[in-house]
Design a protein around this nucleic acid. Structure first.
Lengths: 346, 346
DNA sequence: CTGTTAGCGCTTTCAC
DNA sequence: GTGAAAGCGCTAACAG
């Protein structure tokens, strides 16, 4: 076969089948306005010649690439991996492909990535994590490409579409569990507070819960690092070895929380009898630890799926009833806290 | 500004700057054959007009898209997520973007995905996991697009490039550790044996280790499921509750291994005093469990990175000294086995 | 139902 | 150093 050398084009097929390029184009694109017999003939020569439509040429002519850009902090985090799976599944369902980019939450990298994606003429963009700065807004609004935010939102821009959960409220409720258990000294272990997506909102929720219950907020009970297990491990040891240290830990994510559990155990403290720990996200790890981790179940997959679905609506010009969706979370109380009944949600 | 409505093209820039399209193209592409003054002038009007090169048009004209396809079983597995991170980092370094596709190890989905990626004119393809069947080979060889396999290889096709580790040997060594500890009854917990990438080779290694040591191979000590924690948990309970059950478990991956540890603990058996467990991969979870998991450290990130680098060489026509690389693994003996010294490697 | 004809926005010889 | 012109392979009116 010679299909390897010469690339066969729509023109070749047309000539060979004795029809026009337009007709070939029609059958390739499933346009119904083709006589069945003609269609059959064309399909046959397509097969015979091993014709493969060139999506780049199609993209140039039609101004649609059926490709969307996805900018994400770091795919190696279970949270984002799961979310990305949701995105890709829906994208696939609607016949889109995704170009995946890791930003490491670095603003300049984000900006440069978005720019590159726009140059590639993606039909839409999903942006996750990272603060939406003025520069982001500028580049977003400088083009007609629809952008939806996932797992975050833009406080400043009223109508920027997004799909997320209420991080503050969830963190507040999670901390509330610890409070209901009777803990008076509750530690906080998290990533950087400068992170407007995870770090800060969850910190806020924690703080609000304390103040609403009249509990003391102690600067020294706040331990910060990154979002990894080791942070949870080290920070919690620190906390537990203090005089008057916390008796319960609110961790901003599950990896940290599991680190916290192990820290307690390493120090000979029993969880949850002596120390309660509550996490956030409900990644698989949460049920792969003993005791099972109590946590805030965040619908990661759904955030991705819903965000992608919303984006398809923009791309296809479908009517959109609600472009800012706040998904439900759920308190998943397992064995790292003593309370087993979810209180009436606020 | 009107940059939102009318898209400004290279032609507009040329006209505005009083030069030809060719010149604009040259400065955009960093071609040195442009007088500094001209370059400056062009750059200036590019900035002023907010010109953004259209990569699709460029792709059509140049027959290069600077995009590579990545077909992977499931990004929500830590193993693949980490590997993908390695891929993306190197891709990024060489100014390529990746189109990520999850295949769920389904042959038809893989084939369809590869086809779609080829239609999109990716400059190269990274294929991970899943058996390489005759149909795969046909589609691969039916085009000039370079394909490299990662974390696997094609036994049948001699010169298909790949980057992987020696799964059989690694599994053999891991099992060997358990044997050296004196275990006589060693259980195997894995995914489907029909998986030619992970399941089968690792099973083979296990089996070889036993037979070389003259240890009994018992069908009933083989437990199969998927690659998740629950499989490890349930299968191991099954195993440990047998009369004459295994006293050590070789798990084909870390998630399963951690499930195995918890199964033992749930049954009141101590790890590693009563039951030894060894895993495979060395995902973060391996150090997020107590006792710390002994495992085979697979250079996941590197497999991705090296595979991507190899692919760039093909795409750029660089000379290639070795297109089939077998990376080193390492036995990481921690606390779920009793042996702490790595024996002399074979 | 089918064909003709313009482009889509850029790269790439080939001249000058 | 720079420009002119010919495509890259396809879609999208428009005409018939």
């Amino acid at each position: 076969m010679d299909r390897k050398k010469e690339t066969v084009t729509i023109y070749d097929v047309a000539r060979e089948a004795g029809v026009s390029m337009a007709t070939v184009s029609r059958v390739v694109n499933g346009n119904p306005n083709v006589k069945p017999l003609t269609r059959k003939k064309v399909l046959e020569t397509i097969r015979r010649m091993g014709y493969r439509p060139n999506a780049v040429a199609r993209g140039l002519a039609s101004k649609k690439t059926t490709t969307v850009g996805v900018v994400i902090p770091d795919i190696s985090y279970a949270f984002f991996a799961e979310l990305t799976r949701g995105i890709e599944d829906i994208a696939n369902m609607y016949h889109y492909n995704i170009i995946l980019c890791n930003s490491d939450l670095k603003k300049n990298k984000e900006l440069q990535l978005i720019e590159a994606l726009f140059e590639k003429q993606v039909d839409g963009l999903l942006f996750l994590g990272g603060e939406v700065t003025e520069e982001h807004r500028e580049i977003f609004s400088g083009s007609d490409i629809p952008v939806v935010l996932a797992a975050t939102q833009d406080e400043k821009v009223k109508n920027r579409p997004f799909v997320t959960i209420d991080h503050v409220q969830a963190a507040k409720e999670a901390t509330g569990i610890l409070i209901r258990e009777g803990h008076q000294r509750i530690g906080f272990v998290g990533g950087p507070l400068t992170d407007p997506i995870i770090g800060y909102p969850r910190y806020l929720g924690y703080k609000e819960a304390l103040s609403e219950s009249g509990l003391p907020f102690e600067e020294k009970w706040i331990q910060l690092g990154n979002y990894r297990y080791d942070t949870g491990l080290k920070a919690t040891k620190e906390l537990l070895m203090m005089e008057e240290g916390p008796t319960a830990i609110f961790a901003v994510n599950d990896e940290i929380a599991v680190g916290a559990i192990h820290a307690a155990q390493d120090l000979g403290k029993r969880v949850p009898e002596e120390i309660s720990v509550i996490g956030f996200d409900n990644i698989p790890l949460a049920t792969q630890v003993r005791p099972l981790l109590s946590t805030v179940a965040v619908p990661m997959y759904d955030i991705g799926a819903v965000a992608m679905r919303l984006l398809t609506k923009y791309m296809n010009g479908e009517p959109i009833e609600n472009n800012q969706v706040v998904l439900e979370y759920r308190l998943e109380l397992r064995d790292s806290t003593q309370l087993k009944e979810t209180p009436d949600s606020v």
